[in-house]
Nucleic acid binder design. Structure first.
Lengths: 85, 85
DNA sequence: ACGAGCTGTTGTATAACTACAACAGAGTAT
DNA sequence: ATACTCTGTTGTAGTTATACAACAGCTCGT
């Protein structure tokens, strides 16, 4: 299968919560370099790992990972506030 | 990483829609035996493939795949009807 | 200036996923 | 009975994901 490159919000979510790659890696049970690979998009996580990340952050898989480039959270939230008050 | 075995509803969804493994495989761009492996839970899909399956059925990744054994759709729906009318 | 922690990168090795070919069994239709 | 489709299974091979070690660059605090 010609693997599509997927996009994700791991770096942002991690930074928002002020945790290091090592912390996240330990929490989800992978090597800390693996987190780096994922954040840089050098390869995609397995579905199992995607679920672990999703569970850790308490967010859906689709919120964290996407087949299309992700807009910054700040933009999305700001736009929503304008629209809906 | 000791990979967890994940559960999925691929076989049911496919059967509901009356499509064969070959049809599904062609639609999502994998070998038809791969669909068999996934349905039997012999291995987990990559996140990319999980997204393709999700897109194909128009259902969320979490609806199709789960870390815990999935209740039959019939049971879940029936229970909901009882509760909510 | 120095040490400590975080990040990016490179390299090698193993495990997991996917492709592909081949065959057997069950079911269905002709 | 024969042909056909679908499914389950086995085997081999290639690609991708993960582990682990090592090192360089950066920032921050001392």
């Amino acid at each position: 299968m010609e693997t599509r490159r997927l996009y994700n919000r791991i770096a942002v979510l991690r930074s928002e919560r002020g945790i290091s790659r090592k912390d996240l890696a330990a929490a989800i049970g992978v090597n800390y370099q693996t987190v780096g690979y994922l954040e840089r998009g050098e390869y995609n996580p397995s579905l199992d790992l995607a679920f672990k990340i999703s569970e850790y952050f308490g967010l859906s898989v689709e919120f964290i990972f996407s087949t299309k480039p992700l807009k910054p959270l700040s933009e999305e939230l700001h736009a929503r506030r304008r629209e809906e008050g």
